[in-house]
Simulated scan of single mutants.
Amino acid sequence: ESILNAQVGDVDSKIYRKHAEQIETELQELEKEIIGEKGLIEKKLTAYDKLLTTYPWLQDERKKFMYTMPDKNKQKNDYISWKTEWAKIFFDYARFAILHIIYIREFNSQKPFSDFTNREQYIIEIAEELINLKQAKWISKKKEKLRIYWKTLDVWSDEIYRWAYDNGKLEPVMIFELREAKDKDFSNLPIEDLEAIFKLLAKNRRAKVLKLDNGQLALKIKLE
């Protein structure tokens, strides 16, 4: 009888372990599914999706008229309102998409701008409004590329200094190190802006700019 009980106990133990392993496997699969769903949600949250939360009228059928620019001579007030609203949307799109340089031809195919009745003309009109607001500038004579400033160089300089300080970057910081900080919005700033930010930090006595043998600049921060 004791042998039989031992065998039964051994069988129960094996069944329990198998059941526990099965539950653990199912939990791991469930966790993968949850993580996968979260990743999918994050991946689907595009700049356009973010725009819709701020400007829900973009999908409102009753607002279709906003995709046609009012006549600037005959409907001056409507034109000004239209241009002002779309300048905000353009600005926020660049901010949500973390774009510093806008290529007009590529922008034509991005929603909501792809729904314009005259895409290229309207986008240039909106870009000119941002330039008037000192939030952008043309960087090509043919108006094919636009530099948009959704943060000032002063703000970027603060962020770069804080990043270097928090990460213990007491040795000279190379531009490629900023490029490798992929989780930071400044990682894809144009090289000209990064060099200007280095000089700005030096001017404010928060860092020293070093010129390397290859002609590139490096930044050595000063502790505050």
Score class of each variant (00 low, 15 high):
Gln22Glu: 14
Thr68Ser: 14
Trp150His: 09
Gln59Lys: 15
Asp213His: 11
Lys88Trp: 07
Leu51Pro: 00
Glu85Gln: 14
Lys32Tyr: 06
Leu223Ser: 08
Leu178Cys: 00
Ala94Gln: 03
Leu27Glu: 10
Pro112Arg: 05
Lys222Tyr: 14
Ile89Ser: 03
Lys134Gly: 08
Tyr93Glu: 02
Phe198Arg: 00
Ile126Thr: 01
Lys143Ile: 02
Ile191Asn: 11
Asn132Val: 03
Tyr93Gln: 03
Phe186Tyr: 03
Lys38Pro: 02
Ile23Ser: 09
Ile3Arg: 15
Asp193Val: 03
Trp150Met: 03
Leu200Ile: 05
Tyr67Gln: 06
Gly168Ser: 05
Thr84Tyr: 12
Gln75Gly: 03
Glu24Arg: 14
Leu212Val: 06
Arg179Cys: 01
Lys208Met: 08
Glu21Lys: 14
Gly9Ser: 14
Val155Thr: 09
Gln216His: 08
His100Tyr: 11
Arg147Leu: 15
Asp193Trp: 04
Arg179Trp: 02
Tyr165Gly: 04
Ile89Lys: 06
Ser81Tyr: 13
Asp158Tyr: 02
Glu159Cys: 01
Lys151Asp: 05
Asn188Arg: 12
Arg162Asp: 13
Ala196Asn: 08
Lys14Asn: 07
Pro56Gln: 03
Tyr16Thr: 06
Val209Lys: 01
Phe65Gly: 05
Lys64His: 10
Glu85Phe: 07
Glu29Thr: 15
Ser13Pro: 03
Tyr165Glu: 12
Ile160Asn: 00
Phe186Trp: 02
Phe96Val: 02
Glu177His: 11
Ile80Ser: 13
Ser187Pro: 01
Lys18Phe: 07
Arg17His: 09
Val8Cys: 10
Lys141Phe: 08
Glu29Lys: 15
Lys32Phe: 06
Ala181Trp: 01
Asn214Trp: 05
Thr152Ser: 14
Arg105Asn: 15
Glu31Ile: 09
Lys63His: 13
Phe107Trp: 02
Lys76Ser: 12
Ser187Tyr: 05
Tyr55Asn: 05
Phe113Glu: 00
Ile126Met: 03
Asp166His: 09
Glu29Ile: 15
Asn108Tyr: 07
Phe176Val: 11
Glu26Asn: 11
Glu37Lys: 15
Asn118Arg: 14
Tyr48Asp: 01
Asp10Glu: 14
Leu130Glu: 02
Pro190Cys: 06
Glu21Met: 13
Ile3Gln: 15
Asp185Ser: 12
Phe65Gln: 12
Pro190Ile: 03
Thr25Leu: 15
Asp78Trp: 08
Tyr55Ile: 04
Gln110Trp: 04
Glu177Cys: 06
Ile34Thr: 04
Lys18Met: 07
Lys220Ile: 05
Ser114Thr: 10
Pro190Trp: 05
Glu128Asn: 15
Lys63Pro: 00
Tyr55Arg: 06
Tyr149Trp: 07
Glu125Arg: 08
Leu4Gly: 10
Ile160His: 00
Leu223Lys: 11
Arg119Phe: 05
Phe107Gly: 01
Tyr161Trp: 05
Tyr161Gln: 02
Gln59Ala: 13
Ile197Asp: 01
Leu201Glu: 02
Phe116Arg: 04
Tyr79His: 13
Leu30Glu: 11
Gln121Cys: 09
Ala20Val: 11
Glu195His: 13
Lys111Asn: 08
